[in-house]
């Protein structure tokens, strides 16, 4: 489920692109609603994002 509060501005036309961090980790790309440019997570950054998301889940549970 895409959280509409999570957006990233399109590098081409600056339109906010809604995305979901978990889906990005699974390799999903999100398209700009204005110019159809597609943004996705690079393979080399996947481990660090995965680690951060795991830490976030642990933090939520422990809090």
């Amino acid at each position: 489920m895409i959280n509409k509060d999570s957006t990233i501005p399109c590098p081409v036309c600056k339109t906010p692109i809604p995305f979901d961090a978990q889906s990005l980790l699974m390799g999903v790309s999100f398209s700009c609603p204005s110019c159809s440019a597609s943004v996705g997570l690079s393979n080399q950054s996947r481990p660090i994002v995965e680690k951060t998301m795991t830490e976030l889940e642990t933090f939520k549970k422990n809090k």
């Binding site: 790309s29 440019a37 597609s38 996705g40 997570l41 690079s42 080399q44 950054s45 994002v49 830490e55």
Partner: peptide, 24 residues
């Protein structure tokens, strides 16, 4: 988790950057 402390500077942080790809 999202910042690294700058060496030698107190209370100064650098954001951790990740790479994304754009295709058009």
């Amino acid at each position: 988790t999202c910042f690294t402390k700058k060496e030698g500077e107190a209370n100064s942080y650098d954001p951790i950057m990740i790479q994304m790809s754009l295709s058009q």
